[in-house]
Amino acid sequence: MANTLTLTATSPCYGLLPKTVGTCTLTETDLGTLTSVAPFKGRAVSDALKGAHGMAFPAPNRATGKDGARAIWFGRDMVLLAGPVPDPGLGDHAALTDQSDAWTCVTLSGEDAGAVLARLVPVDLRPAIFKQGHTARTQLGHMNASITRTGPDSFLILVFRSMAATLVHDLVTAMESLAARH
């Protein structure tokens, strides 16, 4: 009799999330396929991106699209396409690289979400400055992160996959210390 072995993929925050402390909830977010889109020198990719996936190529510090299909500015001359499998036609204009297993993706939501991040992130994330559709490549604690506002009280946070446990630890510690003040 042949032995059968079943392997089940686990997500970066498997066993760590969700977590609710005070007014804030931290959940893992499955963004689907993640692809970095780096336009070839001098090539515009916005029309192709719009035609294939319905969102414009975002300007620096901005994200376009919506839940399920988002384009997040991800650094100099680079955007992260989160959700759909990239249309092969995009490959005529940009270098496409699969990043699906490389990132930890979490959503921090709740009334104090901004105050929690203010303890960890050296960027002004107040709603008047950092509006819906704004994104930043910055640091969260000592980790390089991508932070995008997805709602009035919610942020999408990405760090390298290897840092999942540290990300959860740092965020939950900040959530707890903030909740302790209420």
Partner: peptide
Amino acid sequence: PICGERDRRE
């Protein structure tokens, strides 16, 4: 010039 004014630690 791309991100705006940022903290030195970045």
